[in-house]
Write a protein that binds this DNA or RNA. Sequence first.
DNA 1: CTCTGTCTTTACGTTTACGTAAACGTAAGG
DNA 2: CCTTACGTTTACGTAAACGTAAAGACAGAG
Lengths: 138, 138
Amino acid sequence: MPDGAPVSAVEETYTISQLAEAFELTPRTIRYYEDEGLLTPRREGQQRVYTHRDWARLKLIMRGKRLGFTIAGIKDFLDLYEVGDAQVPQMRFLLASARDRITTLEQQLRDVQQTLVDLKEIEGLVVDHLARRGALDA
Amino acid sequence: MPDGAPVSAVEETYTISQLAEAFELTPRTIRYYEDEGLLTPRREGQQRVYTHRDWARLKLIMRGKRLGFTIAGIKDFLDLYEVGDAQVPQMRFLLASARDRITTLEQQLRDVQQTLVDLKEIEGLVVDHLARRGALDA
DNA sequence: CTCTGTCTTTACGTTTACGTAAACGTAAGG
DNA sequence: CCTTACGTTTACGTAAACGTAAAGACAGAG
């Protein structure tokens, strides 16, 4: 179960169901991500062959999903990681996208922190309330 | 534009379109939230009358949406804020819900922070790249 | 060769979170 | 009284993100 870079010289590959199991997705979902342009596995015959690069992309996809991004939003986001071979106008665009995304993430950071404060206060209240009734066991 | 507690003794109220404009939603959306049990305005004739309590709930709803929660998830979340009049079994349940939510929020916090690190690094790379080409203006 | 397992494509179904249109009630203004 | 503005309900429409058959390709085991 590789989580980082590949170890051997022979490029390690995965089938669709291996990826599916590793990320707790269905093959259907992974094909859907391909339809939406998030993944572009090469083919061997008609079968899809995934590499560690797809593995890394899927990790980013899952993170994006946990953050509530849409699939289209995640696609734009993935493009930011592929900035190496871009021309200047494209780079300007990517820069603007990255900065927009940073702005919303900073808002989201504040939201998460405030919600955590709220919930922990509520947790304290409830624990306290249950304690006063001697009902804090189990 | 009240943002905190009401000032006068006479309970300040709002129409549906006032709320809609304040939160940049449509009346349709606000009625939908009512259908889903997130809001329960009182009626005057057949018209809905909203108070500062609904205002506060809407603020929580919007925050939940920015965090990518589903409407059902936000409903459960709102219930946590109404913990005052609960019985012991219900309290146990709410406590468990709160703790679950805290767990996922802490994951989300890590995700946001990591993504911000990534994006700021990308931003740096792009800025650098544009600078080397003397293409950093405008 | 047949069976089994895993892959493939095609395509219709489903849920969520609203949008949109139709048709009507009601109070205020001219 | 008529219009305008804002509210109401009912109900069908829609985009996103998959789920779920259906039907076939293909490799290896027996």
